[in-house]
Amino acid sequence: MNPSPMPVSAVGANALRTITLEVFRFRPEQDPLPSWQTYQVPCREEWVVLDALNYIKDHLDGSLSYRWSCHMAVCGSCGMMINGKPILSCKAFVRDFPDHIRVEPLGNLTVIRDLVVKQERLLANLSAVKSWLIPKTPAAADEPYRQTPVQLDQYRHLSMCINCLLCYAACPQVALNEGYLGPAALALAHRYNLDSRDGGTFERMQATASADGIWECSFVGECSEVCPKHVDPAGAIQQMKLASSLDWFARRLGLGERS
């Protein structure tokens, strides 16, 4: 949303702070291996790291590639590793960092080019866990379901996921097991499980309680630490483990399926 960062003359010299941006470069057509490139960027006080990258793109090196759009931490495009931690670059204020900032693509994911990673894994997993409403009762034609604020509150925080993949970058299990469904997808599955309108928990369990599902999570907990929307996927996954265990016992005891 920012107008493309201005040339230095327009920036207002009094507010400038020059930082060194050390940026991960990977250009498969030029070099099969990644490298590092450093840029000196004059930054305004209120800039975020994304503004600094836009400055590089516009004024220093047009070949630097990265994704961004909304510049207000809701489209989920611009996640990167900044000084080793996954963060949305539009929310990473330069003032909170030292003069030397290292920018890398999100960890644990395949890099297509520079700071651009493959995101298909998340999209495939969102489908695999059936992250959509499976109605408990058929909807009346022109009448919304009733849902009290308390019922809404059960799942609301989980519905805040912006699919930015920071949690995938923070989770070692995502790197260790390529098939692991991952924090965001599991949290969104649980979002629907907890929705009073939904009756699909058991159906989702076919994926979520599979070998690549919740039991792959060893509760490192970093996914929740880095989540920009406070979704707490780690907590959601533990809740699903509990629910899945109870379901297993209930069926062993012949109490039928819980859903």
Partner: peptide, 14 residues
């Protein structure tokens, strides 16, 4: 709403 949109609700669920 039928697809799950989390609209804000009144106390009675509407």
């Amino acid at each position: 709403e039928h697809w799950g949109c989390p609209w804000s609700r009144a106390e009675d669920g509407r």
